[in-house]
């Protein structure tokens, strides 16, 4: 499993559709959790809870809401 890029670096992939940032500048909507990994563009399983969300990328592990 590889590490996610630093939080302040530009995402390589759109978290709304999984395409590279070069072809999609970001189509994720307000009030949607990320569905694709910003580092590799893989689809992520997402658990939404009353106070947050957890997304799991097979390559990059878990990501959590702030």
């Amino acid at each position: 499993m590889t590490q996610l890029p630093a939080a302040d670096s530009a995402p390589a992939f759109c978290t709304g559709c999984g395409q590279s940032s070069a072809s999609c500048p970001g189509c994720g909507r307000d009030f949607d959790p990320p569905r694709y990994c910003s580092a590799c563009g893989r689809w992520m399983g997402v658990t939404v809870t009353p106070s947050g969300w957890t997304a799991r990328c097979k390559e990059h592990g878990e990501q959590h809401s702030a």
């Binding site: 009030f31 949607d32 959790p33 997402v46 939404v48 809870t49 009353p50 106070s51 947050g52």
Partner: peptide
């Protein structure tokens, strides 16, 4: 309903 919904997010509780 406060907080998030089933697959989408709500506004801040």
């Amino acid at each position: 309903i406060v907080g998030n919904y089933l697959t989408t997010l709500g506004r801040s509780s």
